[in-house]
Amino acid sequence: RVIAMPSVRKYAREKGVDIRLVQGTGKNGRVLKEDIDAWLA
């Protein structure tokens, strides 16, 4: 299970990103909004 705040999950869904593919850089591997942006870049 991916650790991410609900707002980040929603952001990823809106961008069409599968959050399971994104490498989290936050505490304990948490996926941050910046990680979604970096994955899209």
Rank of each mutant, 00 (worst) to 15 (best):
1 R>L: 10
1 R>P: 14
1 R>V: 13
1 R>S: 12
1 R>Y: 03
2 V>W: 02
2 V>A: 12
2 V>T: 11
3 I>K: 13
3 I>S: 08
3 I>H: 07
4 A>H: 06
5 M>D: 11
5 M>W: 12
5 M>S: 12
5 M>V: 10
6 P>E: 10
6 P>M: 10
6 P>N: 13
6 P>T: 13
7 S>E: 14
7 S>P: 07
7 S>H: 12
7 S>R: 11
7 S>W: 09
8 V>F: 01
8 V>T: 07
9 R>T: 07
9 R>L: 10
9 R>I: 13
9 R>W: 13
10 K>V: 08
10 K>R: 15
10 K>Q: 12
10 K>H: 10
10 K>D: 12
10 K>E: 14
11 Y>L: 05
11 Y>M: 04
11 Y>K: 05
11 Y>E: 07
12 A>T: 01
12 A>R: 00
13 R>M: 15
13 R>G: 11
14 E>P: 00
14 E>Q: 12
14 E>I: 13
14 E>S: 11
14 E>L: 15
14 E>K: 14
14 E>H: 12
14 E>D: 14
15 K>D: 01
15 K>M: 14
15 K>H: 15
16 G>T: 04
16 G>R: 08
16 G>E: 07
16 G>M: 09
16 G>Y: 07
16 G>A: 07
16 G>C: 08
17 V>M: 04
17 V>I: 09
17 V>S: 01
17 V>T: 03
17 V>N: 00
17 V>K: 00
18 D>I: 06
18 D>P: 11
18 D>N: 11
18 D>F: 04
19 I>H: 03
19 I>S: 02
20 R>S: 14
20 R>Q: 14
20 R>A: 13
20 R>L: 09
20 R>I: 08
20 R>G: 09
21 L>Q: 11
21 L>N: 09
21 L>P: 02
21 L>I: 13
21 L>T: 06
22 V>R: 01
22 V>A: 03
22 V>I: 10
23 Q>S: 13
23 Q>L: 15
23 Q>I: 15
24 G>Y: 02
24 G>S: 05
24 G>Q: 03
24 G>F: 02
25 T>R: 07
25 T>A: 04
26 G>L: 02
26 G>W: 01
26 G>V: 03
26 G>S: 04
27 K>W: 09
27 K>E: 11
28 N>R: 11
28 N>L: 14
28 N>F: 15
29 G>W: 04
29 G>F: 06
29 G>V: 02
30 R>M: 15
30 R>S: 11
31 V>E: 00
31 V>F: 01
31 V>M: 04
32 L>N: 07
32 L>R: 13
32 L>Q: 10
32 L>A: 05
32 L>F: 08
32 L>H: 08
33 K>Y: 08
33 K>S: 07
33 K>G: 04
33 K>P: 06
33 K>N: 06
34 E>T: 14
34 E>D: 15
34 E>I: 13
34 E>M: 11
34 E>N: 09
34 E>V: 09
34 E>G: 12
35 D>N: 07
35 D>R: 00
35 D>I: 00
35 D>L: 01
35 D>S: 02
35 D>V: 00
35 D>M: 01
36 I>E: 00
36 I>N: 00
36 I>H: 00
37 D>T: 05
37 D>R: 05
37 D>L: 06
37 D>I: 06
37 D>S: 04
38 A>R: 12
38 A>H: 15
38 A>P: 01
38 A>K: 13
38 A>E: 14
39 W>A: 07
39 W>T: 05
39 W>Q: 06
39 W>S: 05
39 W>G: 02
39 W>K: 04
39 W>V: 08
39 W>N: 04
40 L>S: 06
40 L>P: 04
40 L>H: 06
40 L>E: 05
40 L>Y: 07
40 L>G: 05
40 L>D: 04
40 L>K: 06
41 A>Q: 15
41 A>G: 11
41 A>P: 06
41 A>T: 14
41 A>F: 15
